[in-house]
Each structure stands twice: as C-alpha cells, then as structure tokens.
Amino acid sequence: MSERTLTGVERIAAAFAQRSRRAALMPYLMGGFPTLEQSQRIGAAYVSAGADLIELGVPYSDPLADGPVIHAAGTRALAGGATVSGVLEIAQALSESVPVVLMCYANMVLAPGAPEFARRLAGTGACGLIVPDLPVGEQPDVLRECDAHGLALVPLVAPTTTPERLAMIGEQARGFLYTVSVVGTTGEREALADRFTEIVSRARASTAVPVALGFGIGTPEQARMAADAGADGVIVGTRLVRAAGEAPDDPAAAAGSVLEDLAAGLEG
C-alpha cells in the first residue's frame, strides 16, 4: 500500500506544528545568487542550520517590492544566466529536505499562464507560492490553480492594510499569512516598526493559518522580539542575502552561520 504524499499545504502546516523553536525559522534566498550552484548550497546550509521552511526567490527584471540588497542580488543572478527553470531545479533539490515556497513576481507567474505555472511548480515538490505584486482578489485563477495542486498561495498583509482587506486576505490565506513588519521594501532596519505587536495580533485575529513576520528582521534580538509578539514564524531575507554577497569565497557558510545565530534568538 503506497503512502499518499503530503500536499504542499499539509507540509507547511506540519512544519509549523512540529517546529522545535518558539517560532518557525524561515530564511529567504535569491535563486541564482551568487550563482545557481552556490544558491543551492546556500539552501542546503539553511537546512543544516535548522530552517523549518525556505523561501526561494526568482530573480526578476523589475522587483518593486525589494530593497537594494535583494534587487542587486537579483540583477547579479540574471546577469549570471539564472532562469525560472534553473530556480525551479533548485526548488526540486531543496524540497526533498524542507518545505520550499517560491517567491515570484506576477509577470513570470502569468507568462506561461497560471495553470501551467502551478503545474510546473507542483511538479518540483515545492509547497507554496508568494507573488509580491499580486494582491488578493486581483487574479482568482492563480488561487484556483494553486488550490488544485495543493500549493499554498501565501498572501501578504502590511501595516497599512485596512480591516476590510485584512479580513478578506486572512480568509483566503493558505499556508501562512506573510505579515510585513514595516511600511516599505525588504531591508534591514535598526529597530522594528511601531505597532509591531499590534500587526501580529491583527493578523492572527483575521486568519486560521500561522502568522509569519518578515521585512527588516536581521538580528537574533529582533527575531526574539518577533516571537515575543506572537509570530508563529520569522522570515529573514536581506540579512542573509547580504551575508552571502559579502563572502564570495563561501557564501553558503557565511549565510548558514548568520542563520544559526538567528536561530539562537528563537530558542527557549
């Protein structure tokens, strides 16, 4: 008798439920940065450091939601020849060890059409998709196709999101609710934004899925504050991409080391 493979949504739920720390450790990496091969090793280093889930970015020509560090990483990845296919291969490789959520801008998701994109993504074993420039409700077909493949379409909410939109987004959320901690683009901040605890509570009240906090979290202290505020997961992006970029000899070791420090902030 064969075991049914868990769907993406189920794998993500299990990752949150079975985490060993106060909040799930959710690092981001830019596929193809510094090279495709090195980015895959960065992902493996994240797994060794204890990542509960990995966000895998697809480099894009016009990343509106990304600050300078991640934008530059994407530009470098594209210049190095990174393609959607190349990044999907990384997704496949990493998916064996950890749930992978792809982060991809709308034009690349819709280029082959939502059905084809969802099919390809599910085929890699990836668990979910985040589309930073696709607000909830704009393209119902993307949600439909992700649901059909058991892929979690993870929405974002911002501090500026109105109560009405928050309710709608919370209701349609799959996987987790990506809660943006600051008004702005990705990037490290010296202090977490005001109303930090408030946004986590607002998000939690609106949805049945776990709440993950991201944007501007770069130190173990900030990670701990996120867990204190009630976040089920902590997303770290720019800090790790910066570490990889600053260590050309061994980006995976550098990023892995930073992630281990961040993980320590979530212990106990």
Binding site: L64, A65, A106, P132, D133, L134, P135, V136, E138, P155, L156, V157, A158, T160, T161, T162, R165, I169, V180, V183, G184
Partner: peptide, 9 residues
C-alpha cells in the same frame, strides 16, 4: 492593480 499589498490602501 498588480502592486504590493502595502500600496492597496
């Protein structure tokens, strides 16, 4: 409206 959620309001 294909923009980050931050801009929707």
């Amino acid at each position: 409206q294909y923009v980050p959620e931050t801009l929707m309001p």
